[in-house]
Design a protein around this nucleic acid. Structure first.
Lengths: 205, 205
DNA sequence: CCGGATCTGGGAGTCACTATCATTTGAGAG
DNA sequence: CTCTCAAATGATAGTGACTCCCAGATCCGG
């Protein structure tokens, strides 16, 4: 009892839920790789994960969200951004935050490879790709807006700040989709640097 | 025969198709306004337009596309952009192209009002709003990329150009969504100017 | 006016997703 | 250990978007 409790602060119930969530995700990604996203029914995923179809929808609101809900970049990005000195201009802070984020991701060696595979899936399924812009922001969008607003002196909910958030998300959506079409060992840092450079150099009056 | 042909270069068949397309769209918008997007079934729209459900899907691939396929801004924007002098920097050309586009839209007095109502619908339905980014580009995306690429010296299919396209679309997606939440008589030109200003002033290194 | 292409309506079917209810299972109190 | 309650699960039925297919109607060119 005590031994089990000290190992994990979560009760059996919570641990089971995490296991189920993971089982569904793993089964889904395996089947997507084998037969493609559209050809894989939710019933089939649920069966492969040994749960009922009802349970699938209790864990994921839609089949697309199973792919999109994982790791919305805006959350971690806004945290890294908030950690940068306040006097860095927006694009410099963004570049440094991205470097820090990639660096942190390298601590888990499989993380980049999994992210890359996920992006390949997203890029190859139109219905998911279309919703990537919104999904990238996710619930972390407000935090991203605040992080950018502190560097521009605008209000976090102003048109100007929202425009900035939209532009940054739109830019990195392209960067990520581009990544999915490159050699698997392409360095993400280079890609992000080129993206920030493009925003800084080519978006001029 | 000759009379009819001189009035319209389209045969009876083509004219009927246009009328049907318009009938479906009008019926749909009317029903959406009355009962909302989600509560309006495709069967109901088809019945109101006096066509079968099959015919609905022959004219529009999905219910969402009925709203999104109308007037993708990237097409007209890329045309106005191509008409600007080649030595204007990207954001200046973009601003002037937007002015020209809005000016042209004013020739049809109902156009802006309809566009505004359409944006209110898009902004209020999450499943449509999520897909707005892709829909804004539409088939005119390639032309927009070319128009921007000529001003930056980049290749039209380069990462840098795609990043620029994504940023511009992301920025104006926010502008349009903001527009949908403002007073109905808000001037679009001001909105677009503020958007371009935000890109120029706040997106700095 | 006729032969072929095209458009339409109808019906059957798939699949994502929702709502509901009975059953099971982990959590916590005694 | 047991009892109770809340939460998780599974099964079922249903809705609605969308596809496929076929038979009949409509338009078009010769």
């Amino acid at each position: 009892m005590n031994a089990a409790c000290s190992v994990s602060p979560l009760g059996l119930r919570e641990r089971k839920k995490l296991r189920t969530r993971r089982a569904i995700r793993d089964a889904a990604y395996r089947l997507f790789a084998e037969q493609g996203f559209d050809a894989t029914t939710v019933d089939r995923i649920a069966a492969a994960a040994n749960v009922s179809t009802s349970t699938f929808f209790r864990y994921f609101p839609t089949k697309e969200e199973l792919v999109l809900s994982e790791d919305p970049p805006a959350r971690s990005l806004s945290e890294e951004l908030a950690a940068r000195p306040a006097d860095e201009p927006p694009l410099t802070a963004l570049r440094n935050a991205l470097h820090a984020g990639v660096e942190r991701a390298r601590s888990d060696p499989g993380a980049l490879r999994r992210a890359r595979q996920r992006m390949e899936l997203i890029a190859s399924v139109p219905s998911i790709r279309d919703r990537l812009h919104e999904a990238m922001a996710g619930p972390g969008r407000a935090a991203l807006a605040r992080a950018l607003a502190t560097r521009t002196g605008r209000a976090p909910d102003s048109l100007e700040t929202n425009v900035l958030v939209g532009a940054v998300l739109g830019a990195f959506r392209e960067a990520l989709l581009h990544w999915a079409g490159t050699e698997p060992d392409t360095d993400v840092t280079d890609l992000f640097d080129r993206t920030v450079d493009a925003l800084a150099r080519d978006l001029t009056t």
